[in-house]
């Protein structure tokens, strides 16, 4: 077995999987792979339609709609990660999932932290009229 061959195929190592790997070399047939992508596409379309429906319907309690949209968006991102990027929770995927978890932690700190801090600053700010009076 040449070095080239050994480094080329992941199947004979069988330890890790890279993000985006197709698993055809792990014995799944091409048809099964295509079906996986089609299933992912169908789920993503369904969630997209649900999101667009949620803003136009009156069936959902108004103030709850943004939360519904967040939930649908997170679900659709999960679908994309699993079916298109092939990030799964299998044992060969630990590194990828841990990197993803760290990314999610940082993203949520940045987004929720900014919104939280800025909302408080906004709340505690002296109103513009008062500020002008103080400067006189």
């Amino acid at each position: 077995m040449s070095t080239e061959r050994r480094f080329d195929a992941g199947s004979d190592v069988g330890q890790d999987s890279a993000p985006g790997d197709d698993s055809t070399d792990e014995g799944r047939s091409l048809g099964a792979e295509v079906r996986g992508y089609i299933l992912g596409l169908a789920l993503a379309i369904a969630l997209t339609i649900a999101s667009f429906w949620a803003v136009q319907t009156h069936l959902i309690y108004g103030p709850g709609i943004p939360m519904a949209l967040v939930v649908l968006a997170v679900a659709q991102m999960g679908i994309h990660l699993v079916f298109f990027l092939h990030i799964t929770t299998g044992p060969d995927n630990t590194n990828n999932v841990l990197a993803l978890a760290f990314g999610v932690l940082i993203v949520s700190l940045v987004v929720f932290g900014s919104v939280w801090v800025m909302a408080h600053l906004n709340h505690n700010m002296v109103p513009m009229g008062e500020l002008l009076k103080m400067q006189r």
């Binding site: 480094f7 992941g10 190592v13 890279a18 993000p19 990197a99 993803l100």
Partner: peptide, 21 residues
Amino acid sequence: PAPKRIVVGYGFWIFLLSDVI
């Protein structure tokens, strides 16, 4: 050592996560 395909994919995955951040 991990095969090159794994290293390439993992490295690019890290880049993508930094892009997302």
